[in-house]
Amino acid sequence: MTVRFRHADPVWAAFPELSAGVLYAAGVDAPADTRRRAAGYTDRAVARLARASEGEFPEVLAWRRTFSRMGVKPTQYRSASESLLRRLRKEGALPRIHPLVDLCNAVSVAYAVPVAVLDVDRITGPLLEVRPARGDETYTAFGGGVERPAPGEVTFVDSAGRAHARRWTHRQSGHSAVGAHTGRVLVVAEAMHDGGAETVAEVLKTVEEEVAAHWAATTATAVLTPAAPEFVFGH
């Protein structure tokens, strides 16, 4: 089955500054060691953090403004990139989760924009949409509990009404988190800052090159805009 990924029209209308890019990759289930390459990206973030805290980064400030406009307290719920940068600054390292997730997290801190990685086989098609929640969606937390997104919060929702990320923070649900069983992924990078389109394009290029180098996977990418809002994947 093919799946369409898109941002709903109200999202584009409310946040015209959004820059979004997606990558689909099949064949990422082979063992791979991404530690050396991930460390290179992490080092770039460490060097930047030595000059200023993540709260001063234009990329982070733009997401904080976005959260405030959604009615979400930006210091209570942080974008995934801000959370990772904060952890890196405080602890000097990022958590190790999965070779691909670790790599994407490192790329995320290097560019200071959130990068989500979803297990495609845990998404129910034919549509995965970034849209305001209605309040009847279900979200599986990493601890296994089930939550209901608040009406209006921006979330990734599939055709079964399952939310794969809440509050636009790009933190994946426990249901679609990448693990040892994962063979196909959807990577989503989004930015809100001035120059975000160039950043997202560079993130996509970087992730595609790394995936090809480590897994020889089949990939497809797209930069999404209001005029071209959909990406079809999973052939």
Rank of each mutant, 00 (worst) to 15 (best):
V3N: 04
V3H: 00
F5C: 09
R6L: 15
H7V: 13
P10H: 09
P10E: 07
V11M: 01
W12A: 15
A14M: 06
L18S: 05
S19G: 13
S19D: 09
G21M: 12
G21N: 11
L23A: 09
A25H: 02
D29C: 12
A30D: 07
P31R: 08
D33S: 10
T34W: 07
T34E: 05
T34S: 10
R35H: 09
R37F: 02
A39R: 14
A39M: 13
G40F: 01
Y41I: 05
T42C: 15
D43R: 11
A45R: 06
V46W: 07
A50M: 02
R51C: 10
A52N: 14
S53M: 01
F57H: 14
F57V: 14
F57S: 14
A62I: 00
A62T: 01
R64Y: 02
R64I: 04
T66F: 07
S68K: 09
R69G: 00
T75P: 09
Q76N: 06
R78K: 14
S79A: 15
S81P: 09
S83Q: 08
L84A: 15
R87L: 15
R87N: 15
L88F: 05
V101G: 05
N105P: 08
V107Q: 08
V107G: 08
A110E: 07
A110Q: 07
Y111E: 08
V113I: 15
V117M: 11
D119I: 15
D119Y: 13
V120K: 01
D121L: 04
R122C: 08
P126N: 09
L128C: 13
E129G: 01
R131V: 11
R131S: 07
R134Q: 03
R134G: 04
R134D: 03
D136V: 13
E137H: 04
E137W: 06
T138E: 10
F142Y: 11
G143E: 10
G143V: 08
G145M: 09
G145D: 09
A150M: 13
G152Y: 11
V154P: 00
V154D: 01
F156I: 04
D158C: 02
D158T: 02
S159R: 07
A160M: 12
G161S: 03
R162M: 13
R166P: 01
R167M: 08
W168A: 00
H170P: 03
R171Q: 08
R171L: 11
G174W: 01
H175P: 03
H175N: 03
V178F: 08
V178L: 09
T182F: 03
R184E: 08
L186S: 02
V187Y: 00
V188Q: 04
A189Y: 06
E190F: 06
A191C: 12
H193P: 10
G195N: 14
G196L: 05
A197V: 15
A201H: 14
T206K: 00
E209S: 12
E209Y: 03
V211G: 06
V211F: 10
A212H: 10
A212W: 00
A213L: 15
H214M: 08
W215A: 01
T219E: 07
T225R: 15
P226W: 10
A228Y: 06
E230C: 12
E230Q: 13
E230R: 11
H235K: 00
